[in-house]
Amino acid sequence: MTSEWPLWEVFIRGQHGLSHRHVGSLHAPDAAMAINNARDVYTRRNEGVSIWVVRSSDIAASAPGEKGPLFDPSNSKVYRHPTFYEVPEEAGNM
């Protein structure tokens, strides 16, 4: 029975102002039950204020083979990494 239920990816927003984060996946027959299941599986300890679920099959992902062309060039350009600035102490965490 379970094997017939589609897989859903679960995103939870922990606190107001933070974005939804991927927390894991689960099986459910439809979106409403996926949200209920997500509540039971992932938010028992007040982890969330909002839940998103999306069918895993609806996510387009980069292929591991494309890793080089997609990510390699950025590492050779040091100026892309903001490591040359000193953050004033008064600014706190950035």
């Binding site: 029975m1 379970t2 239920w5 689960l26 099986h27 459910a28 209920n36 299941n37 039971d40 599986v41 028992r44």
Partner: peptide, 12 residues
């Protein structure tokens, strides 16, 4: 329970 998700829900 029939599915892992239901099992957790029942235990809750």
């Amino acid at each position: 329970a029939p599915a892992l998700e239901d099992d957790i829900a029942m235990a809750n």
